[in-house]
Simulated scan of single mutants.
Amino acid sequence: MNWYIEVLKKYAVFGGRARRKEYWMFALVNVVIAIVLAIVDAILGNQILSLIYTLAILLPGLGVSVRRLHDTGRTGWWLLIGIIPVVGFIVLLVFTVSEGTRGQNAYGADPKEGGYSPAHS
C-alpha cells in the first residue's frame, strides 16, 4: 500500500524513473480497488464511483507509466503504442516488466541505487 500512496504523492510527476515494484504494486492496488468499486456500483445500480475513481487516478497512472518507461531508457511517448490493439498492449507489457537501466540514464538516477523503499520509510 505504501507504493500506491507514494505514486499518489507524485500526482502529476512525469519526470524521473519508477522501479518495477512501484509500477506493479500501484497496478495491483488499482485492480483491487476497481473490483471493489465495481461490486459497490453494481449494488447501487450505477457506475458513478468507478467513474470518479478512474478520473482521479488518471494522472498518477500516466505519471507512473511514463516514469516506468523512463527507467527502461524509453521516452514516455511510447505509451501511445498502446493505441494499437493487442500488439500495443503486448509491447507495453514487455517494457514494463523489463529490468530498468542500471545506473544513471537520460531520465535520472537509478531508483534502486538510492535505496529508497516506501515500505521501509
Rank of each mutant, 00 (worst) to 15 (best):
N2A: 14
I5C: 03
E6V: 00
V7Y: 01
V7M: 09
V7T: 11
L8Q: 01
Y11W: 14
A12G: 12
F14R: 05
G15T: 15
R17F: 06
R19Y: 01
K21A: 09
Y23H: 07
Y23I: 03
W24Y: 10
F26V: 04
I33C: 11
I33T: 11
I35V: 14
L37R: 08
A38D: 11
A38K: 13
I39V: 15
I39M: 10
I43M: 14
G45H: 10
Q47W: 13
I48H: 06
I48L: 13
L51H: 06
L51R: 09
T54A: 15
T54I: 03
A56Y: 00
P60Q: 07
P60W: 11
G61F: 02
L62N: 08
L62P: 08
S65F: 01
L69K: 01
L69M: 07
H70R: 02
D71T: 06
T72Q: 06
G73V: 09
R74Q: 14
G76E: 08
W77F: 14
L79D: 04
G82F: 03
G82T: 03
V86R: 02
V87E: 05
V87W: 04
F89K: 07
L92M: 12
E99G: 13
E99H: 09
G100Y: 01
T101D: 08
T101Q: 14
G103D: 10
Q104R: 13
Y107M: 05
Y107R: 01
G108A: 11
P111G: 04
E113W: 00
E113T: 10
Y116A: 03
Y116D: 06
S117D: 15
S117R: 06
